[in-house]
């Protein structure tokens, strides 16, 4: 952290670091677009697992890009320990999100419009009336 300092006591990140970060971000963006066109479901012959692989790749690349921006563009890598702790603490939210998911998928939910749309007999919602009448369509997978 004391590698690049000036008399004024603040760190000036060298321009080469910013340039490298920009190129890394552009490369990762190209990679994530390319990966999205690869159908892993077809390759491994399991569409559900393939979808998971695609998602994991896309989110891993997005997290890598975010880390690059935080560390170098936002300069957290060169900041004080207190700043580092505080900055990363914000992203602990995503761990809480995992806990919320656990709750959603283990609890028995009361039927509510929009959540179990197909298996409950609720009065038609305003949005259903507003929609242009279309043949009752479901996805090929046969609904939910």
């Amino acid at each position: 952290m004391a590698a690049h300092t000036e008399d004024h006591g603040h760190h000036i990140t060298p321009m080469s670091v910013y340039v490298k970060t920009l190129f890394a971000l552009a490369f990762l963006m190209a990679l994530t677009i390319a990966a999205s066109y690869v159908d892993f479901g077809k390759i491994i012959g399991n569409s559900a697992l393939g979808s998971v692989i695609n998602n994991v790749i896309a989110m891993t690349i997005a997290c890598l890009k975010a880390v690059l921006v935080i560390q170098f563009f936002m300069g957290v890598k060169y900041s004080s320990k207190l700043t580092k702790m505080w900055a990363w603490a914000g992203f602990v939210w995503f761990l809480l999100m995992g806990m919320t998911f656990g709750d959603y998928f283990t609890r028995h939910w009361e039927p509510a419009p929009g959540w179990y749309a197909e298996d409950t007999e609720l009065p038609p919602r305003e949005s259903e009336i507003r929609l242009r009448p279309t043949p009752k369509v479901h996805s090929e997978e046969g609904g939910h």
């Binding site: 999205s36 569409s47 979808s51 690349i61 975010a66 921006v69 563009f73």
Partner: peptide
């Protein structure tokens, strides 16, 4: 400038996640 920069980079990070989540969905 540094603080406004932090804000701007944050807005960039949000887009970094929005892009794959909306434009690059797998089947």
């Amino acid at each position: 400038t540094e603080m406004i920069g932090l804000y701007w980079h944050f807005v960039d990070i949000v887009w970094i996640f929005l892009f794959p989540l909306y434009y690059l969905l797998p089947r």
